[in-house]
Design a protein around this nucleic acid. Structure first.
Lengths: 111, 111
DNA sequence: GATTAGTACAACTTTGTTGTAGATTTCGCG
DNA sequence: CGCGAAATCTACAACAAAGTTGTACTAATC
């Protein structure tokens, strides 16, 4: 299987999980900021989407122009099975690493 | 406050939380592999410890030679308050990003 | 053609990885 | 004993991958 995912790559893939069919560059950017509270430039999203697609972890298709307002056509993305499996690996590693440490960490941080 | 932590940097700091007083390069390496299941070379740990210390996120002191076995003196590390706070920020961002997505991800990955 | 919504990408910085070298300490063996 | 082998641990250079920033561009509506 492919190599590891970076942390922001993981966030991006989680956003795809959350967004389902409504995942495209700009909505992914909004979703990451809204969910996590972490801010990033939209450019970062497109850079990572390109890299992830070339690794076969996401797939894309260009949508129809939307009825609503102006703007270029949306390019939609979804997780591939390979991408989902790799994200799950990262998910489980993180979960095991963190398990049971939350309250200790909170105590250390409030000093 | 300082910049973001990388993912492996976070793992390393979690290992410090888990190990308490018994944190030094080699034990940190073992702890990360044992907890997360992720494998890495010990060299990576020392590289990151140096970088984290120069950012003021961990502090170190050299221990006495241990009665037991051979080996060079251990250099012990602990989280500084700044390090703990930064780790907590990453912890919370990750938690919010992932929240509620676990079961959907598992379903996508089993295809 | 002004405005809005969205994508592309080059250049650069920071993190992560690998491999090798070196420092100390204990222990067995002649 | 005292010397070298083995055990335990740290250091770091060189490279690869991921993250960040800023700007330019495309395409649709009014």
């Amino acid at each position: 299987m492919a190599k590891r995912l970076g942390e922001l790559e993981q966030f991006l893939l989680y956003a795809l999980v959350a967004l389902g069919d409504e995942a495209y560059g700009a909505s992914i950017h909004r979703e990451i900021e809204a969910r996590s509270g972490r801010s990033l430039l939209v450019g970062a999203v497109y850079t990572l989407l390109d890299r992830l697609e070339s690794r076969g972890l996401v797939a894309s298709w260009v949508g129809e122009p939307t009825a609503a307002r102006g703007g270029r056509r949306r390019k939609h993305y979804r997780l591939t099975p390979a991408g989902a499996r790799l994200l799950l690996v990262a998910h489980e590693e993180h979960h095991r690493m963190v398990r049971g440490l939350g309250s200790r960490l909170a105590r250390l941080a409030e000093r």
